[in-house]
Design a protein around this nucleic acid. Structure first.
Lengths: 353, 353
DNA sequence: CCGAGGGGCGGAAACGTTTCCAGAACCGCT
DNA sequence: AGCGGTTCTGGAAACGTTTCCGCCCCTCGG
């Protein structure tokens, strides 16, 4: 906290030239070499650094992009945020993080707050959607890229992964490796991912000839909640149609909960029970047994969203784009895949598209 | 992207009152009830929302706080960021995330960039420190709170945990539970945390009567790098003074690497080998066996830093504060502690201060 | 009834920057 | 020498807001 900062006018005075020339010399073009030299020197002497706010006011651009999600600490959002930051920072954009809150209404409020112009655009991961949110999206002043399926036709661009199809791949993989009785451990049914993944499981198991598929839902996407639901799931299946030989979980944390419940009951994984998760998180990669998981490509979603956003704020928006990132199944030990040589080494994993 | 936004002048015209009164009616005080009513109505009709940039220019406050760390995706930084956001958002402040880069020089640049005034202050987690950074901190225009030990006396406030003392607690705990030959698996020796934790281990084991302590350092704080170093550590100890019965790792990821290496060699944990980590990450809580770990209270660090920052930007800065967060040892299965009833349930853990 | 005080309002000046516009200087060409 | 064109410079006007400073008028106390 030394002195109060030098302004452009002071630099101009010191250099003995006009304000306009000073500005041009520092940032714009159309200044002579001598002028640039002279102004640079004056600026250096004064320790001048341009004021971001003044510049924003004039240029009507803040060089900031907002990233909003319900829980900014969750692995999915962290991965996206990191990717977004990595994509945006080299172009001179800053990332400001916001929390949507759990409801669609609070999310709509957040979108509305963007109208105060503190950022040039927003990458939004809505936890839930409804008409109110769609309305809010339609009335926005700045570009918004929605990550994940968002209901209604707000005019916003979107990036999403077909997690339902991803679940389908997990089910197919289990069938192909000889599993017959597959259970589903889902998440909160009223959340965007919870609903979609459940739908994927139902679609993948519909029309199968065997005993009806059994499903349970955890109250939250956490190991603790998952463990309770996993016990219920295993018990219910055993009592009603025979024990499961595979569980598809809607999330890696839930899958790990299944792993723990299985160990409680003395079931070996993948011998007695195969388990798959969703998200391809570091946790699942490192856990023992390592976890077969549907990768939703969060980092890639983030990158795509950031790139679209960059186009939009630069005025290259041609209609609402809808980018889809392909889910991939990463086979590891929990469904009988090979143990990776070194943990965290992606080359050792077996992608199965 | 409907129409371009309404400004305060337009609201004033519509309400038929002066600009000054309009501003007062909406935000300030000293406006009659009738005036407030009238202006509110006009603002609503026009869908007015105040411009953040204009306001910032005038008020010389952006209502933004920067959070900067080397890898914003790491568990420590994520936990801090979440805590900072949680503390700041209710007071109307936004959080913008920045990456420092790996070196002290790039960190210094980042601190310098704060002089452009895009944020009112910065919470900084420097990956490495040197005189250049200290200089940069001394010349800053906006308040900075440094998290973690930062060398030199820059005048900035700081929040840190004595991780060296935390390592000491881990060593004491191992001694008290009958471990005799304790090894250390450290991180990069030239990083701030790597250096400090190594120092803590040396201090805790100095003067012990037994065979000299054995230590290895991983190239990075990752499981993969840790596994390589862990194998070296176990081999070297066995060849030179007898096998270890405990390993203190400088990080939870490194501790998990030790767990894997132990399993490779058929060592039971905690039977043959006790293992402790640092960071009390979710990964360690969930892993099997669950990991005894030194909690550095990252969330608390973040909260404290945010609170100090809030005081600073509000002008209540009385000299450089140095807050210390106490490390706590969380005893779990990997050193013989009880298995938690449900994963992630902190009440089931055994804190040992 | 008069003066002091205060609450409420409007005019205008900032805050720091970029950029439009007009003018000046200079160059090359006929 | 005259003229069209290019290159550079300076003046001034925004951008949207808050707040200082007068001014008016009302009220209250003497």
């Amino acid at each position: 906290m030394t002195s109060s900062r030098a302004t452009l006018v002071q630099v101009a005075e010191r250099a003995g030239v006009s304000l306009a020339s000073t500005s041009r010399a520092l940032h714009g073009s159309g200044a002579s070499a001598a002028m640039v030299e002279r102004v640079r020197a004056a600026a250096d002497e004064l320790g001048y650094s341009p004021d971001a706010v003044g510049r924003s006011l004039r240029m009507k651009r803040t060089f900031q992009i907002a990233f909003a999600a319900a829980d900014i600490g969750g692995p999915a959002h962290v991965e996206m945020m990191t990717a977004i930051h990595g994509e945006l920072a080299p172009h001179g954009y800053r990332v400001v993080v916001l929390a949507t809150g759990d409801t669609a209404a609070s999310t709509a409020d957040l979108v509305h707050s963007l109208n105060s112009g503190f950022a040039d655009g927003m990458v939004l991961v809505p936890p839930r959607t409804d008409d109110l949110l769609a309305d809010s999206l339609r009335r926005r002043d700045a570009p918004v890229v929605v990550v994940g399926r968002a209901s209604g036709d707000h005019g916003a661009d979107s990036v999403s992964t077909d997690s339902a199809a991803g679940i389908g791949r997990a089910v197919r993989h289990l069938r192909e490796t000889g599993r017959r009785r597959i259970g589903f451990l889902g998440g909160p049914a009223d959340s965007v991912p919870g609903e979609e993944r459940r739908r994927g499981f139902d679609a993948a198991t519909a029309g199968g000839g065997g005993p009806p598929a059994v499903a349970e839902a955890a109250a939250e996407f956490t190991v603790a909640a998952g463990e309770v639901a996993a016990r219920r799931l295993l018990d219910r299946a055993a009592a009603d149609g025979g024990p499961l030989d595979a569980v598809v979980a809607a999330d890696d944390l839930l899958a790990i909960a299944v792993l723990r419940a299985a160990r409680e009951r003395g079931l070996s994984v993948p011998g007695d029970l195969a388990v798959t998760g969703v998200g391809d998180t570091e946790l699942g990669r490192i856990f023992q047994p390592s976890l077969t998981s549907v990768s939703l490509g969060w980092a890639e979603c983030g990158r795509s969203a950031a790139r679209i956003m960059l186009d939009l704020v630069r005025g290259r928006g041609e209609g609402a784009r809808r980018v889809r990132v392909e889910p991939r199944l990463i086979v590891r030990e929990s469904t009988g895949g090979a143990a990776p040589g070194a943990a965290g080494d992606p080359a050792a994993d077996t992608p199965e598209p």
